[in-house]
Amino acid sequence: MRRQLPLTITFVTAFTLAVQYFIPHRTFEILYEVSQVWLQIVGAFAMVLGIVSLWQLHWNKARGRKPGWGYSVVTLVCLTAMIVFGFTGPTKLGEVKAGGWIGPFNWSYDNVLNPLSATMFALLAYFIASAAYRAFRARTAIATILLLSAVIVMLGRVPLGDVISFGLFSKIANWLLYVPNVAAKRAIVIGVGLGVAAMSLKVMLGIERSYMGGE
């Protein structure tokens, strides 16, 4: 029963939702609407599950003084603080009166998360420049093609590239984006699509059961 029940639920749900796509009847529309509400409720529970799992992972790491445990403490403190802040003050900036206290949640967002994220991303420019200089070598024919494409696209996508190449780089860059890039991407997308369809069928028919705890 422990195995048959989840398999049955999975099959019935997956089959019904797949079939309803092709049947434009009101009954199936209602069924579909209800399933969307259910999906969001289940999604909300997944968030709770994620928080609990994150807490357990870092709590165990901090308690056991495992390598990097200090970061786990920071994670736990920040997680708790933001949850508490979320309950104690205005969380929506638009509700704050002009000149009024924006509350700890908004303050943390504006003064901690916002600058930290922006700084982390901005630092990438330095690392990309340094890494490109050290690692981007025309060692083989394939690497040379990649290198040339990258250089042309980098210059072809900025106004200065057009100035120094009289518009040639942007034309080649656009061709690279519209022809080889699209061909490769389309092949990947179709491959992934077929893979997803095959995997979904396997899950629906109970062939793939690892979601039940690994078999």
Partner: peptide, 28 residues
């Protein structure tokens, strides 16, 4: 975009310098 133009050009120059050095220094 003006800033990005200069930075892109600089990165390309560094890549070229790296490759010239790589081939002519004997490392290749």
């Amino acid at each position: 975009m003006n800033i990005q133009s200069i930075v892109h050009l600089l990165i390309v120059v560094f890549v070229l310098i790296g490759n010239v050095g790589f081939f002519l220094s004997g490392q290749y």
